[in-house]
Simulated assay, not measured.
Amino acid sequence: MKNTFIAIAASVVTLVSGGAYAQSKTLQVGDALPAANEPMKNATDGGEMVYSKAAGKNGLLVMFSCNTCPFVVKNEGTTAKTIEYAREHGIGVVIINSNEAKREGDDSFEAMKRYARKQGYKVPYLADANSTLANAYGANHTPEIFLFDKKSKLVYKGAMSDNPGTPEEAKVMYINNAIDAVVAGKQPDPASTKSIGCSIKRKA
Rank of each mutant, 00 (worst) to 15 (best):
R202V: 12
S108C: 02
E144M: 07
A116P: 00
A55R: 11
A170P: 02
L27R: 04
N97K: 02
N42H: 09
K74E: 08
M160P: 03
L147V: 12
G30D: 06
A22F: 13
G47Y: 07
K81D: 13
T166V: 15
A170K: 08
T14S: 04
T132C: 11
R87P: 00
M49Q: 12
E100W: 07
V72I: 14
P143H: 12
E76I: 13
P39I: 15
I175C: 02
I91W: 10
N163W: 04
K194C: 01
Y21P: 00
K157S: 12
A43I: 05
G77H: 06
A35D: 13
P167K: 13
Y85A: 06
V73R: 08
G47H: 09
V183T: 10
N135Y: 08
A184T: 02
T78G: 05
V12T: 03
E144W: 08
T79M: 12
N75I: 14
E144K: 04
T78C: 01
L126E: 09
M112E: 06
T14L: 10
I95D: 10
A127M: 14
Y21H: 11
F109M: 02
A54E: 07
V13E: 04
L126N: 06
I6S: 00
A10Y: 04
Q187K: 09
Y174P: 02
I95Y: 01
T78Q: 07
D128F: 09
N42K: 12
K203S: 13
V172T: 15
Y21A: 12
D128P: 04
K113G: 05
V12A: 07
I179R: 07
E144R: 04
K25P: 00
A55K: 15
F5Y: 10
A139C: 10
G105Q: 10
N99Q: 03
L15I: 11
V123S: 07
V155Y: 00
L154Q: 08
K203M: 09
A136D: 09
D106V: 14
K74W: 03
G19F: 03
E100K: 06
Y121I: 08
V94S: 05
V12G: 01
S98L: 02
Y121N: 14
